[in-house]
Design a protein around this nucleic acid. Structure first.
Lengths: 218, 218
DNA sequence: CCGACTTTGTGCAGGCGTTCACAAGCGCGT
DNA sequence: ACGCGCTTGTGAACGCCTGCACAAAGTCGG
């Protein structure tokens, strides 16, 4: 296994994992690349090539064992480690993330919730009580958490990010609509809630523009 | 302009747009590809090639006019159209989206909020009152909206999706963690809040695995 | 035990995207 | 008017990803 898993494949593994969990719940024991592809919304050749990077877990003529595949993908993604994450910013988005099944259901435990607003400190969200963001360093040290999630307003994000890095967090997921800078050695990823909507707008725009020009011709 | 804009470029235009808005607010009149690249978190060659797909709006030796670029990108993305969107599902995530600056600030107006929970119907969110999801078809017809956003639990998503399509919505943005199916002619995009976290997990996992094997060698 | 059928795993070709590197172009100071 | 320095726009090379097509390999019924 000296061949590194391509980044494009890594980005699709969570998709397969979600589809496989759904298949497992519906009682499927095995699944073909064709069926998994349909469930994950990709094509089957891609599924086979992606899975081949993890090893040979399929049986020709039959398909893949759902449970086995769930385990292997989880292992490859490091989800069997039982990561703890610290979530900063407990507004609407923070609440949504804290309650999101895709976190707890994939091996992520929320170790702490932090917010700058004193009015929110002490609130109980799930099984965690919101603490003040000033205690960030202390919380990180106490829990040994290495993954941080930023769900604050844009203005506060860089400051929170710096604090996370100072405290020793080495992986950061940013939901705030700003470009953050981190030192080398820290892995930063972002999710922008508005980007996809704007891409949608582009396509819709182009489609209607096309139709209009066709109407002019007619 | 017979050359279509590459999809990869379209995906980055919202990034540039956000960076440019920030630059405009800080009073910058012009910006070089280098500076814009830094603000958007990409490299300058990509910025220049991307912008060249829209036309020649730069001045050699100087850079790009911020205001002009904002307008051209907005136009290309269709954001000058003033889209209206209907948002289904007003839980935590729905609230977060309704209040998200990146929507209203980019030309998207929320035309209606819908939810299946009778307890939430009537609630005022922003300047809109939550209506019951049964009125979806009526609301879509009345407002003429063509873009729908799904922020419901996974179980309800496909049903809501079908209803949106039936009502005439042709662009759908899905935040629910399921793969939806739509007929041809409907553009469907998705945002999965957990995918990026799992990718982060992969890298962190690989990093620590690497460090451990190095420690074994030492 | 065999043959037909199913499905995986992969070599290969084509296409798309990224990056480098540089000529062309513009402003500014002299 | 002219040359210097800066920045754009793009040609070309490279690498990654995708999708096809098929041989290899396993199952299942008879």
């Amino acid at each position: 296994m000296p061949v590194p898993v391509p980044e494009a494949t890594v980005a699709r593994l969570p998709l397969y994992l979600r589809a496989l969990h759904a298949l497992a719940e519906s009682g499927r024991g095995t699944v073909s690349s064709e069926a998994l592809a349909a469930a994950a919304g990709v094509n089957s050749a891609k599924v086979r090539k992606d899975l081949s990077h993890l090893g040979s877990y399929g049986t020709r003529g039959v398909g893949y064992e759902v449970e086995e595949l769930v385990f292997e993908i989880s292992r490859e993604l490091g989800l069997t480690q039982g990561w703890s994450v610290v979530l900063v910013g407990v507004g609407n988005l923070g609440h949504a993330l804290a309650g999101y099944g895709g976190f707890a259901g994939r091996g992520f435990r929320i170790a702490a919730l932090l917010d700058a607003d004193p009015a929110r400190v002490g609130e109980l969200v799930g099984d965690q009580r919101v603490q003040h963001v000033d205690q960030l360093a202390e919380v990180v040290r106490a829990t040994g958490v290495t993954i941080g999630v930023i769900a604050t307003p844009a203005q506060a994000a860089q400051q929170v990010c710096d604090a996370l890095v100072d405290a020793g967090v080495t992986s950061i997921l940013n939901f705030a609509p700003v470009v953050l800078s981190v030192p080398d050695g820290v892995d930063l990823r972002k999710v922008d809630l508005a980007v996809e909507l704007q891409i949608l707008s582009f396509h819709q725009h182009r489609r209607t523009a096309l139709r209009e020009s066709r109407e002019v011709l007619a």
